[in-house]
């Protein structure tokens, strides 16, 4: 079944899902750390961290994309470091698209998770401490399960954002079919060519279905998890 999509379009869909998956997966632990630090931490530079986390949300995406190009491009300091240490390059590759999407999704994930952390009753953590649980065990057995609905919400939000990311991606890694051309950039390309509207429309429908599916999935998951957490 092809749903009327050609191989190139399937490639766009597959690439978008891959990019969004890795973008979400890799930013999740960092987003959780940032959310915990912002919700609970008392340290110098907390406000600076807060601003840094939120910058991608308010900067023009093209600026974020340009900064990524400067830092993570093949000649950029971080780009070279990743290339030498991990053998991982970002420039004009799908990994770069994932990086751009991850950065753009990051603030949304942090905000959702932070709210969940702030909602966890610290009295329960105190109770766990008096029952002999150390900090790591308290986090794993009390804090984490209780903030799980928020983490899930953050993941879905981040995934949906990563699927739809356009500006930073196209600035950083361009629009190369089969390598960096995700659904939004493919739609953009198709709309530039007269007579390709039907193809663009097919991808637009796919976008809507994926986004709606993500929201429904998150709603169902959140309901199950909340049920488990609240015990009602």
């Amino acid at each position: 079944m092809t749903l009327g999509l050609g191989p190139a379009e399937w490639q766009n869909v597959g690439l978008s899902l891959r990019v969004a998956f890795w973008a979400t997966l890799v930013s999740l632990p960092f987003a959780m750390l940032a959310a915990l630090a912002l919700a609970r931490g008392q340290f110098w530079g907390r406000e600076a961290l807060n601003i840094a986390v939120h910058l991608p949300l308010v900067l023009p995406p093209v600026v974020t994309g340009y900064l990524l190009l400067v830092l993570f491009g093949s000649q950029g300091p971080l780009g070279r470091a990743f290339e030498t240490v991990l053998g991982l390059s970002f420039a004009f590759r799908w990994t770069g698209a994932a990086l751009a999407c991850g950065i753009m999704a990051f603030p949304l994930m942090v905000r959702a998770i932070r709210l969940a952390v702030e909602a966890v009753d610290q009295g329960l953590e105190e109770a766990a401490a008096t029952l002999g649980a150390g900090r790591i065990r308290i986090f794993l057995t009390v804090t984490l399960p209780l903030m799980l609905p928020g983490v899930l919400a953050g993941v879905v939000l981040g995934f949906a954002k990563a699927l739809g990311e356009f500006g930073a991606t196209i600035t950083f890694v361009s629009n190369i079919p089969g390598e960096t051309q995700t659904i939004p950039t493919a739609i953009y390309s198709l709309l530039q060519v007269p007579g390709e509207e039907p193809a663009a429309l097919r991808l637009i429908v796919i976008s809507i279905v994926l986004a709606a599916g993500a929201l429904v999935a998150s709603e169902l998951l959140a309901r199950r998890v909340t049920k488990g957490v609240r015990g009602a």
């Binding site: 008096t130 209780l146 015990g231």
Partner: peptide, 29 residues
């Protein structure tokens, strides 16, 4: 540290872990 003091603390409100059953709460410590 609190975790090593071996005190049993009953607070004003029960402070039970909502994601665990009664049995799970009892066995937590």
């Amino acid at each position: 540290p609190a975790a090593a003091r071996r005190v049993g603390y009953v607070f004003q409100e029960p402070r039970l872990f909502p994601h665990l059953s009664v049995d799970g709460n009892l066995r937590y410590g």
